[in-house]
Amino acid sequence: MAALPPYTTLGQRIWHYTFRTIVGLVLFFLIAPILVIIPLSFNAENFFTYTPGMLALDSEAYSLKHYRDFFNNSDWQQAMRNSLMIAPAATLISVGLGTLAAIGLSQSHVPFRRAIMAILISPMIVPLIISAAGMYFFYSRVGLQGTYLGVVLGHAALGIPFVIITVTATLVGFDRSLTRAAANMGANPVTTFFRVQMPLILPGVISGGLFAFITSFDEVVVVLFVGSAGQKTLPWQMFIGLREQISPTILAVATILVALSIMLLTTVELLRRRSERLRGISPG
């Protein structure tokens, strides 16, 4: 496809390039908004727009002050700490419970499989605002509103569908004769699980965990309702920033988060390849 065969007509040639231009524009539409904010985060002024100095590439128009502000401001630091506390805790719960359940679901005889699956996937399907409203009402009744535990539980629930989906997907390709072989050779179920099954489904577990992590790390609506000031997370602080005191510090935070998402993306991609490779060599 890369090079056009010699027999293509002019019309086909034009279409070929027009089509690629259209796709190029769409990809530009996807990526440009993210790239546009990165230079703005180095703006020396407190504005949300490109200054003439920035366009003229004047070095004085750029500065690191918004980054300094981010690292020196206690609100932002507290928000970052909260995010880094809540997201891993929620991820641990979703991954732990989710992996077990996914293994259970992948057995051949599971009663009410469809119904159970529907319930487990529901946090992904129910609109966030409804989940948040429900949790706000219910957690208020049981004393979890405004606590770390409440936010962590809420986020864990939201992350579970991702773990279920990715882990069951890895288990679909899992060859059961491997566990039987291990059992044959005298391994007990626990050893079998950790020595045989786990390494093979690990990529699925990790990428499910990353999805769960990013779900919690990026989540605003539930934490806005279920949390209180003590649990203010990074996205929450950004939401306030956008609504309340619009400052370019947000753009600095945004840039840091983009860097973080590139890291996560790379990890997930590497894991996916490893998983494919592992499955490629497994028999059957």
Binding site: D75, L144, G146, S228, A229, G230, K232
Partner: peptide
Amino acid sequence: VVWDESSAEAVAKLRAQDEAGNLTW
């Protein structure tokens, strides 16, 4: 001191905290 910029929703949030029996403010 922890600041919470929630004055605009103060009545709702206090009502929820009261219902929860968990006063954080």
